[in-house]
Nucleic acid binder design. Structure first.
Lengths: 341, 341
DNA sequence: GCAGCAAGGGTAAACGTTTACCCTCAACAA
DNA sequence: TTGTTGAGGGTAAACGTTTACCCTTGCTGC
């Protein structure tokens, strides 16, 4: 426990710094930095070799703090999810993390609970962290968001578009087409008056799906009566589905299928039906197609959204030198049919 | 686009620095720092007020980079999860994030895929980030882990204990007691020869559960024959359950209940049974009791693990001045009975 | 009258990087 | 000979904090 720390000594259990590497390689700090950052024409092959060896021997890694301070930018990418308990968000987060890592970036995951206050709190924190980019998994309108839009930090919106600017960077599927696909499939299978259960229409994705479905049925000559379009004001998707199914039963509604704007909503509705005195068996449609569906919901036809590839798209948008704004990555979807039970 | 940047000017769209605050409040940088860090007896009430006002006006937040560099420690807490797609891990991560935030810490979530190489990669990265602590959601043995154990960074193991040191900091339930609870409940309900499906025994949690169940049945005079204890070498819990159920059918095994060491395993087994020609209805037990169970698995009795409170426990361990190692937080569990269908 | 102390606050070093700028040397052209 | 150029590499400033150390002032106790 003696007080030895002579500035350039190899450092006991400490993490090696660039100075240690420089000393060991017999060059200046600047040279080490240049070698590590691949600045050409600034070091002979021999010097490069010496530096690399010193780095390996000391198991050196540049300090993030030092780097961030100097370049006024960190390697952190914030992912602000509206609800981490939602398996969909978790899936996107997981794929994003992998893709970011390949670029040497680090994902910071936050749960905004769809709360503007909390979202702002995180945005402030991430500004203090000098985050490289901010990814929204279900953004909500908020003052800080307005303030940061147009700022230097790239803002990327996944699934749900920027509530304040429909042209912001976006990764997701073509929700209008997906809605049409579901309607087309249902119509082709003889469905004529489905009930439509949707999440809050604040989300651009939900809105697009609902509109496309309603319009498709109307265009086919089978308009969906407003009484069959439900969006109970519950907080969770599961509860929304459950409540809607109960409403339908209470009103003695007549419908020949259930179309839900999300799988979890479908789970909720299905649960109510199963619990009811005389469970009926009718086609149920959802969106997302969580991997768990094959195991727990073989009764659910769902639009498969390739969440596993979302991360790659997000990472690409971050890496690009975003020349002229307005970028979007529209990924392919596919309706997966399941109808046993 | 003129090149104005006179060191202390209010900074255009830039984030305000402590120097800006000091200038605005008419005090030195040191004073601002002391006020913000609550150092007593170093500023008059009036000065404190002026500083706070300047902070508010500039919407100032200390730069994480500057802080980290100076104090050789960041506010990042790494959470290394074995598998983010597992809803259980996601639930723990979500609660941890909330608890950490209350302490002004930031969670960094990583997915190690149960791979020692990847876990080491993350450990290295987090050392470079000077992480405040590292939380393992399912740790696996690895060289870097051995190296960091005993180092200055607190290592906290959740659910699964440190594979290299059973006395490391731990948050989880009493798995032995949980296993006994399941066995007791099953025995009390007339179950005499259950099949036991388990995940890889590398996990201390799984091992404890399996042993407790086997011993309990043996003690009750109804030993479980080895042929009814299965642990197929699949990668995913779902696949393990599915494969095990198939094995049982193939061998024409005789069992009156299914006990699985995880809910997802139960999902897999249940799926196989449902798909089979003549689905049988028999009690199924699991562990975890994911919130989704109420909605998608009303047939599953499961040990409810209070994942929502895990985060708080983790945060407490991090905050504590861990005087004398060997700390653990054993949280209460409860068997939730479901047996419709 | 003065030593001692506490309150209040400023100065400057240090943390680990990156990079603008400078220097030297050799090669080469005029 | 004298410039010019390019490679190779060192010096030092700057990024935003925290904190050890110093200084001044007013008060207390003797």
């Amino acid at each position: 426990m003696t007080m030895r720390r002579t500035a350039l000594k190899p450092a006991d259990a400490q993490q090696a710094s660039i100075a240690n590497v420089a000393e060991r390689a017999g060059v200046s700090i600047a040279t080490v930095s240049r070698v590590l950052n691949g600045i050409a024409n600034k070091a002979s092959a021999e010097t490069v070799a010496r530096v690399r060896q010193a780095v390996a021997e000391l198991d050196y890694r540049p300090s993030s703090a030092g780097k961030s301070l100097r370049q006024r930018q960190s390697r952190l990418v914030a992912v602000l999810a509206a609800n981490l308990a939602n398996p969909t968000m978790a899936a996107i987060a997981a794929s994003t993390e992998v893709a970011l890592r390949q670029q040497g970036l680090v994902m910071v995951l936050c749960d905004t609970h769809d709360d503007p206050k909390l979202q702002d709190e995180y945005l402030r924190e991430m500004r203090a962290q000098q985050a490289r980019a901010i990814v929204f998994l279900g953004a909500v309108a908020s003052p800080m968001l307005d303030l940061m839009r147009g700022g230097p930090t790239p803002l990327i919106f996944v699934n749900r578009r920027d509530p304040g600017d429909p042209n912001g960077d976006f990764v997701g599927i073509d929700n209008v087409q997906a809605g049409r696909d579901v309607a087309t499939h249902a119509l082709a299978h003889g469905i004529r008056h489905p009930a439509l259960i949707h999440a809050p229409l604040a989300s651009s994705a939900t809105r697009a799906r609902v509109e496309a479905i309603v319009e498709s049925f109307a265009a086919a000559g089978h308009p969906i009566p407003p009484s069959l379009v439900l969006g109970p004001a519950e907080k969770e998707h599961l509860a929304i589905g459950y409540a809607a199914a109960r409403l339908l039963q209470r009103d003695g509604a007549d419908y020949d299928a259930l179309i839900c704007t999300g799988d979890l909503i479908a789970f909720g509705a299905h649960r109510f039906i199963e619990e009811s005195a005389r469970p009926v068996s009718l086609p149920i449609y959802g969106f997302d197609d969580n991997p768990l569906n094959d195991w727990v919901a073989p009764w659910l036809s769902s639009v498969l959204i390739p969440y596993g590839t979302f991360g790659q798209a997000v990472a690409e948008l971050i890496a690009e030198d975003r020349e002229g704004g307005d970028r979007e990555r529209v990924l392919p979807h596919k309706l997966v049919e399941r109808r046993r039970s």
